[in-house]
């Protein structure tokens, strides 16, 4: 089995994300995730830079890599041209692909996200659409959102949307041929294999819980 470091190096976002970090901490200073969580992109860059397998494994099993909010403010600011946000993408990919993500509670949430947003892409052609934003799980959307969903097509069509209708325009229903093309792309480029790795993790969790 290839080392974690060599697997990381296969991901272009790893090499684009980290060349030589000088530990200045500017990324951490601008990072909204560092402002909110116990999270420090500078520290992650340092750790990864050591290239030590044990440390990498700990990182891939841990909570910290899941804190980044992917705003990429760090890309605009790093004086060395590093992109901690890209580095995080490569770490998260390997964490899921290797199954190590199931060791952290934040990592395990990927299973839910995959079944929700991932599946929505292939079922509807949208990452997000109105009926996905259920008021029960989205109290922050306020009473106006409950009202908007109750009006549904009536309201959306008044605003020029097609609202799940056949044909042209916003929120149109995607034709089966379109969804087939999307699925074929996911199949050809490893998107579906990646999801299988996430589901294998889910399966392992289930087995662990049963035993």
């Amino acid at each position: 089995m290839a080392s974690l470091l060599s697997q990381l190096k296969d991901d272009i976002r790893f090499s684009e994300g980290l060349s030589a970090c000088m530990n200045c901490g500017i990324c951490t200073a601008v990072c909204p995730a560092a402002a909110y969580f116990d999270y420090d992109p500078r520290r992650i860059c340092q750790l990864v830079q050591t290239g030590e397998e044990q440390e990498l494994e700990k990182l891939l099993k841990g909570e910290e890599i899941w804190m980044c909010g992917q705003c990429l403010s760090c890309k605009a600011r790093c004086p060395r041209g590093n992109v901690p946000g890209y580095l995080i993408q490569s770490l998260r990919k390997l964490s899921q692909q290797s199954g190590l993500f199931i060791h952290s509670s934040e990592g395990r949430k990927q299973i839910r996200l995959k079944r929700r947003i991932g599946h929505s892409i292939l079922e509807t052609g949208y990452c997000v659409h109105p009926l996905m934003v259920e008021p029960e799980t989205h109290p922050e959307q306020g009473p106006v959102w409950i009202w908007a969903l109750e009006q549904g097509a009536d309201l959306y069509r008044r605003c020029g949307s097609n609202y799940y209708g056949e044909g042209e325009g916003g929120l149109r229903k995607m034709a089966p041929g379109v969804l087939n093309e999307l699925e074929a792309i996911f199949e050809e480029t490893g998107g579906l294999r990646f999801w299988e790795a996430i589901e294998r993790g889910a399966e392992e969790l289930k087995l662990n819980q049963e035993s």
């Binding site: 990927q110 947003i117 052609g125 042209e168 149109r172 995607m174 041929g177 480029t189 990646f194």
Partner: peptide, 25 residues
């Protein structure tokens, strides 16, 4: 506008659910 265009999958990509090769394609 072409009615066959879809999501770019960007939200899923930044939720780390879509590989780079997939979103690129």
């Amino acid at each position: 506008e072409d009615r066959r265009h879809t999501t770019c999958t960007g939200i899923a990509y930044h939720c780390d659910l879509v590989p780079l090769e997939t979103i690129m394609t």
